[in-house]
Design a protein around this nucleic acid. Structure first.
Lengths: 368, 368
DNA sequence: ACCACAGGGACATAATATGTCCCAGGAGGG
DNA sequence: CCCTCCTGGGACATATTATGTCCCTGTGGT
């Protein structure tokens, strides 16, 4: 079938793009949560049951969705078509181009921009997690040691990781010890969940978040801890979230003194327990066990996952701080980043882009 | 803007193609008859006024159509877009491919297939005429002598010929003398109309259709006739319709003896007063003045215009009978031709295609 | 000056989309 | 084994939109 310049067709029937987008989101949601029923799906997507039914009926007539007593599934054909549709929409919505621009301005070889804004759209974080999970799954090799951090974003990656598609017998390790109170956001929990989905094994780091220097030394002396820590620090693939410095400080319940220090030093981002200022200089590090900044230099692939307009600054800071090979982000963050690059900070951003420009030409690849 | 595989998008939103087609037809009709009002346009297109208004309102918001007290016009942008849209739809509706197939099987370098079926859709004949007229206008040179036949199809070409777009100072001559009673279908009338639209001059052949041998000789001796006839027979561009043999025989009010003869000899097509059987062999010729079959060998371009499912056989017959450089036809006729080629007559048609295959590779060009 | 046709407004009515239930059935957990 | 929860499909009153059919005023061409 022929490919035709879409701008012409869009001009004649502009309302059609929205229809395609809506149906694509339905298909994506089914793919992520199948099997799923009409009512739950409607709630997920923020539609009423009846409206969703009309759409699903059509998609079923097209043979893209199959209904069963247990819920709806994507047909094989629907699966294949949705993958092409993902690419088509990325192009039509300009996310493809957005990714290319970010790749250049941040010096990150591969930047994937998924639809939505994790801050605003409830479904966007799932989407972010899904595409990060799929990308991760594809790049893993059997002998990899995968280190993952905690946080809501990584939790989404774990949750959305497809359980099917051939086991990946990797070892999954938590990049950090315990953090905060929420069980589902722990690196340990996430490592375990991802290992289960991938068909690999995971280990745990039974270490509290904050330690005195003294206790730290003692723990490190424990063989059980020592062994695990060695494995963590030899991770070949690192997948991590990027946090807003101040939000993370609060979540970690840092003391007022520490918060003030971070403020003073202009910390904007947090990753692996390190805090960075807007130029990517490390300004503070937690005294805690786990993956260290210089460990990731030895990793085969470093993947960052972060979305939402509020993360723009933090992402840029992290991109300047250490090597990121793959960034999975969303439209909200991406637009903020591009706006910042072309606005006031233009000179600095331009310089950054120029410095890393030669690197971007090899192996750059934008998907989704 | 990117071009994307349309089959994917069509699968997800199949109703959209119809919308695009409907709006394209509206734009085409406006282009053909501008300036035109809402009511007349609705009647032309077989829509109610209100429905058309909704569509036109949208097209106007898109800046493709401009409203004026005298009626609606295509904007410059609409004009440009419609030309692209024509091509896109030809591709999407498979007419492009249809044209290519016919080009091969009929051995005609350029085959244009326009939408519709002139037998069934009232607007299709106008469309056929319009695209034939535009193609004709584009291929004419200033020193050309253009010979045209009569008939409803050529009348449509004359009527739809755009009056704007730079004068073509050609000489337009009728290929034949008078025929039948209907003034508007006379070659003379059509030649005059086309000349007016092109900004050229025309001459007339004041000769009745049917003559005795005796009278014919006397007429030919008249200098006035002689001169005109010489010019006609030196035409550099010939545009003609192709008729169904039996229908033409009836319209010409041939005697029963003649009709029986045509039947017996298997006449299926008529052109320039010649009748051909299904293999393209001439089986009968009117004793009349005008362009002769061997004259068209000297023409620079021979263009045939014929549409409607009922014309399939006649077109194939004519294509075998003499050289045609450009065929403008419609979906109705084209589908009939392809069906005939792939069905019972397959061996013959296949042989035909093979014989002329080498010729089709040079200069073949399919438009609209 | 007239006339035919222009676009825009108005509105009752038809058609469709939508929200909200109910129901019988099946899968999975206890 | 039963119980429960969720499934898809049906039904229907209601909201929303599309449609057919007028009327009105203006304007360009004859």
């Amino acid at each position: 079938m022929a490919s035709v310049d879409l701008s012409v067709l869009r001009r004649v029937a502009p309302e059609w793009l929205e229809v395609v987008q809506r149906r694509a989101r339905i298909l994506q949601r089914i793919r992520m949560t199948q099997p799923i029923g009409r009512r739950l799906l409607a709630a997920d997507l923020g539609m009423t049951e009846r409206v969703l039914r009309a759409e699903v009926d059509l998609l079923r007539r097209q043979g893209l969705v199959q209904a069963h007593a247990t819920g709806m599934w994507l047909s094989d054909e629907g699966q294949a078509l949705l993958e092409e549709l993902d690419q088509a929409l990325a192009l039509m919505e300009g996310r493809e181009q957005l990714g290319r621009a970010l790749s250049a301005s941040l010096g990150i070889p591969e930047v994937v921009v998924v639809a939505g804004d994790s801050d605003a759209d409830g479904w966007a974080k799932d989407s972010l997690g899904y595409y990060a999970a799929v990308r991760l799954r594809n790049l893993l090799r059997d002998d990899d040691v995968l280190a993952v951090t905690g946080g809501t974003t990584l939790a989404a990656v774990a949750q959305m990781m497809p359980g099917q598609g051939g086991p990946r017998p990797v070892r999954v390790v938590p990049a950090r010890g315990g953090l905060g109170e929420n069980m589902t956001l722990q690196a340990n929990t996430i490592a375990s969940a991802i290992a289960a989905k991938l068909g690999g094994q995971s280990i745990m780091l039974h270490v509290p978040d904050r330690l005195s220097e003294d206790t730290l030394e003692r723990l490190m002396a424990e063989p059980e801890i020592r062994e695990r820590l060695d494995e963590v620090r030899q991770a070949t693939v690192v997948v991590h979230g990027i946090g807003d410095a101040m939000k993370m400080a609060r979540r970690r319940q840092l003391s007022e003194t520490e918060v003030a220090l971070l403020c003073e030093r202009g910390a904007v981002s947090e990753a692996f327990g390190y805090y960075f200022d807007r130029e990517g200089r490390p300004v503070y590090a937690m005294t805690t066990v786990g993956l260290r900044l210089d460990d990731i230099a030895g990793a085969r692939v470093v993947m960052a996952v972060a979305g939402g307009a509020s993360k723009s600054l933090a992402i840029r800071s992290a991109a300047r701080a250490y090597r990121i090979d793959v960034l999975v982000t969303d439209e909200g963050a991406a637009k903020g980043l591009v706006a910042a690059a072309t606005a006031g900070t233009a000179p600095a951003a331009a310089g950054q882009a120029a410095d890393t420009g030669h690197r971007n030409h090899q192996g750059r690849e934008n998907r989704i």
